[in-house]
Nucleic acid binder design. Structure first.
Lengths: 168, 168
DNA sequence: TTAAGTGCAAATCTTTTGCCACCCT
DNA sequence: AGGGTGGCAAAAGATTTGCACTTAA
């Protein structure tokens, strides 16, 4: 707890940023705004992370995010990456997933959507479907619970259009 | 890969053992049978793990499983626990989950069911619902994928029957 | 007999932290 | 000025692995 910052009040908020498919530049602006709201210093490193996050369209792990950050600022440390991601996660700016099992993978929190992991390539496809929310809320209620959150991940193999050589 | 064993052929099979709510003794018998099928030596330690797995009705992590195993055989090592669980997982005998984030949690693979994590107590409630399978298969197909597997976890807070003091 | 299995400790890997210098506000 | 921050390296925690010894088949 050497870096408690003043997140306490903004901790655990459920709001997601209204980031759909806006251009990176706009995301950057929005993330900086979020930092201002959080009363975080706008340090050079923080800005680098923001830039990396804004340009992501996949779900990289911490190591990969660090690598990308290093391409902008070669001396940024892993600790900073972890600390920043951790703060951003608690503030609801990014979401951390545990897809494979190895290391956590991140993405910008952008409203409710789900993931389909391509077992062949490891790629993650995002998709939306409002059907689940109501259905799952009902399921939880039947067991006596208020649905706070849920995780839904599909694992699939790409359908082969016709006869194609399959790997492996 | 110093212990490749002969799992290769039985690797990645999708079949789950038909273990519903059968008594522990029967589970033990069934797991031993599975070991025979896998051509695994029936060592003392392996039997201890089987016994522990058979008596579980929760979702303990490796450390907890080791602790329980130690109550039967105090000299069983963590390495053995990990190695055995790993083999069992690859053979489809147990399933490993990443609920919290800390360490993996295990359970006997017993057909399709889902989890609702009680945010208040950390307890995990299992439930079944055949509705999802067809629905998700369709969703995946719409994106051009064959649904191989999926993960669905609900996080909820227990509904308070009436007026009760809430924690936090 | 002999390959699989085990224990132990060291090695990996990911993520967190203590400490101190430094920069943003 | 002063507290939030970043870097570095050590720490922590989970899981894996090399090696020599046991043991099931």
């Amino acid at each position: 707890m050497s870096h408690p910052s003043k997140l306490s009040s903004l901790d655990r908020k459920n709001t997601c940023l209204p980031i759909g498919h806006m251009p990176p530049g706009e995301k950057v602006r929005m993330l900086i705004e979020a930092c201002v709201a959080l009363r975080l210093h706008r340090s050079r490193q923080r800005h680098v992370v923001i830039q990396v996050l804004s340009e992501m369209d996949d779900h990289p792990d911490s190591r990969e995010i660090h690598r990308r950050a290093c391409m902008i600022d070669p001396k940024i440390s892993v600790a900073t990456i972890y600390r920043t991601l951790s703060i951003f996660e608690r503030a609801g700016i990014v979401t951390r997933h545990d897809f494979g099992g190895e290391s956590g993978r991140y993405e910008l929190a952008s409203g409710r959507h789900h993931h389909l992991v391509d077992r062949r390539s490891g790629k993650v496809v995002d998709f939306q479907d409002g059907t689940f929310d109501a259905l799952l809320k009902r399921v939880a209620a039947e067991m006596g619970y208020d649905l706070v959150d849920y995780r839904l991940e599909l694992y699939g193999e790409p359908e082969l259009p016709a006869g194609m050589s399959s790997g492996s």
